[in-house]
Computed example of a mutant assay.
Amino acid sequence: MTTLFISDLHLDPERPHITALFARFLQEEARGADALYILGDLFEAWVGDDDPSDTGALVAGSVRAVVAAGTPTYFIHGNRDFLLGREYAARAGMSLLAEPSVVLLYGRPALLSHGDTLCTGDVAYQQFRAQTHDPAWQAAFLAQPLEARLAFARKAREASRAHQEGLAGQGTMETITDVAPGAVAATFALYGVDLMIHGHTHRPAVHELVVDGRGRQRIVLGDWYEQGSVLRVDRRGSRLEALA
């Protein structure tokens, strides 16, 4: 049996082919798996569980069908869908996990995270994250009309693109938006695990490193902008693969 990990799908009505790829992945591969973990940014933007989008409805129905067929599905919030709440999770049959969470994978403890908290060099983003994860800010935001929240999401995406373009122009894009080695080492030491799985950076890879004299492994999931990406883990090991 196999446990599946995905992240950074950024599902959006403007890219229906990726939503279709995800639905096919759920139908053809997730059914029968030991578990499915979605490590954030399932959606390009999420402004509240009252969002009536067709994409949200399709995803909820597709995930619920997989759960009903016997594959438990778990979700960790990303930087784009941190407002996904218990109501939508219940509609989809997903279980919400804390950021980060430690799970047991065939006898091996693994730390699961979206990964954005590891990018400590991106000070502007970390300030924005601290603001938007404040419970008072979230309550005030969710109290606004849906159209106002959607407009905020559009402006936030534009600001994010401008921020990344600015970093690219300065030649600091690769270092600032990637994880900070010190943050990775500190996280491994804090949780006492030798396996970490996360997304966010859109740099799929398997990193072997040593922290405090102990071998560790950090697996980074890929995004779904042009194709799919999945990590398959079983008792024999792990395989990080692209999906067409």
Score class of each variant (00 low, 15 high):
A153Y: 06
L112R: 05
S7R: 01
V47D: 04
F188A: 10
L146N: 04
R108F: 10
G40A: 10
V102D: 05
V193F: 12
D122L: 11
R161M: 12
E226T: 14
E44K: 06
V179R: 01
L4H: 00
S7L: 01
D116C: 01
A156M: 03
I219Y: 09
Q170R: 13
V184E: 06
V63D: 01
H163V: 09
G48F: 10
H77N: 13
E44Y: 05
D212C: 06
T19V: 15
A185V: 09
L21G: 08
G107S: 04
R161H: 10
Q126F: 09
D116F: 04
E208L: 15
G40D: 07
H17L: 14
A98L: 12
A244Q: 07
M1G: 14
A130H: 02
H10K: 04
A30I: 03
R232A: 11
Y225V: 14
F22D: 01
Y106Q: 02
L96A: 09
A168T: 14
Q138V: 03
D12Y: 04
R80L: 12
G228I: 05
L150I: 11
N79D: 12
E28H: 10
W137L: 00
A90C: 14
H114G: 07
A153M: 05
H10T: 07
L11Q: 03
R15E: 11
H17M: 13
L150A: 12
E14N: 12
P100I: 04
I6A: 00
P109C: 15
A183H: 09
T175M: 13
R161N: 10
D51A: 11
A57R: 11
L84I: 11
A151D: 12
I176T: 15
Y225M: 13
